[in-house]
């Protein structure tokens, strides 16, 4: 089992000041898959993302990625190990161009230091050219190559989301985590996003995990869907399984609250 899973969480428990946000979560992502994580607001989806990427430190459990334990790692180490992410609210670097934003992703794949920069060593110059070229490639892949020299935060919202994806791709990940990538997009942009996610997996061989509220998009693209509610994983399966799962329906309709327990 271990080897065909790219990411495997077992017994992950996270609490803030006594409030359990994630409760003994078991969850896995096969290699080369597109998986979605859904659930009502406040279910703990973004907390799960933050626990995988090292921003939160779960109190218990394990997060194994490609044979490596991530739980003790810092966010930059997680990225270096091959997981890239986007943020729920687009977080591009202000006052910098689109290309410079994407170049940030190459930081952990390169190593020239201060001295090499000051002396303009050939190795540093080569690396700079490499960073630029690969970043341009990533921009071309998401389809906004001609915006490379614009200030990133002046782009249309849909394009800013693409910059974030290009920036994540520039880290050369094995797994890409997208936190509500369709939020704020119009229907045309959503179709394009669906195609882009499929291309990321099919052409680049990068697995994708997405948190998304747009059920149309989720059902269409995901090979597997996991449902999180009140910090617990309540269902896992294909789109069809999930749509017919009474627990999922209950979680979304919220029948359980108030009147259910007496």
């Amino acid at each position: 089992m271990a080897d065909n899973q790219l990411l495997a969480l077992s017994g992950v428990t996270l609490a803030f000041a006594g409030n359990t946000v994630l409760d003994d979560v078991n969850f896995s992502i096969p290699r080369d898959a597109i998986v979605s994580l859904i659930g009502p607001n406040g279910a703990g989806k973004t907390s799960l993302f933050n626990s995988i990427t090292g921003f939160y430190k779960p109190q218990g459990g394990s997060v194994r990625f490609d044979g490596q334990e991530l739980l003790k790692l810092k966010p930059h180490q997680v990225t270096a190990s091959g997981i890239a992410r986007t943020f729920q609210n687009v977080r591009l670097f202000r006052e910098m161009t689109v290309l410079e934003n994407v170049m940030s992703g190459m930081h952990c794949r390169t190593k020239s230091g201060a001295l090499a920069a000051v002396l303009r060593l050939p190795s540093q110059q080569r690396e700079e050219a490499e960073i630029r070229a690969f970043s341009e490639e990533c921009l071309a892949f998401v389809g906004i190559a001609d915006e490379a020299n614009r200030e990133a935060t002046t782009l249309a919202y849909g394009h800013q989301r693409r910059v974030e994806i290009a920036r994540a791709l520039a880290t050369k990940p094995k797994l890409l985590l997208l936190d509500e990538p369709a939020a704020g997009l119009n229907s045309g942009e959503k179709v394009a996003l669906t195609e882009l996610i499929a291309r990321i997996r099919n052409e680049l061989g990068i697995s994708v995990l997405l948190i998304e509220h747009d059920m149309g998009l989720v059902m269409k693209i995901s090979e597997r869907i996991s449902v999180l509610d009140h910090g617990k994983m309540i269902a896992e399966g294909t789109a069809k399984d999930i749509q017919n799962d009474p627990k999922v329906i209950e979680a979304y309709l919220g029948q359980d609250d108030g009147e259910g327990q007496s």
């Binding site: 930059h76 990225t79 890239a84 202000r94 910098m96 940030s104 190459m106 930081h107």
Partner: peptide
Amino acid sequence: FRLANSRLGRAWLYVRHDEDAAEAMGINR
């Protein structure tokens, strides 16, 4: 000038603008 136009120079700006996003990009702040 050379530092500003280098990998490290850009990393300073990334970290200054948004520490979390910079960390998420694999930069040890």
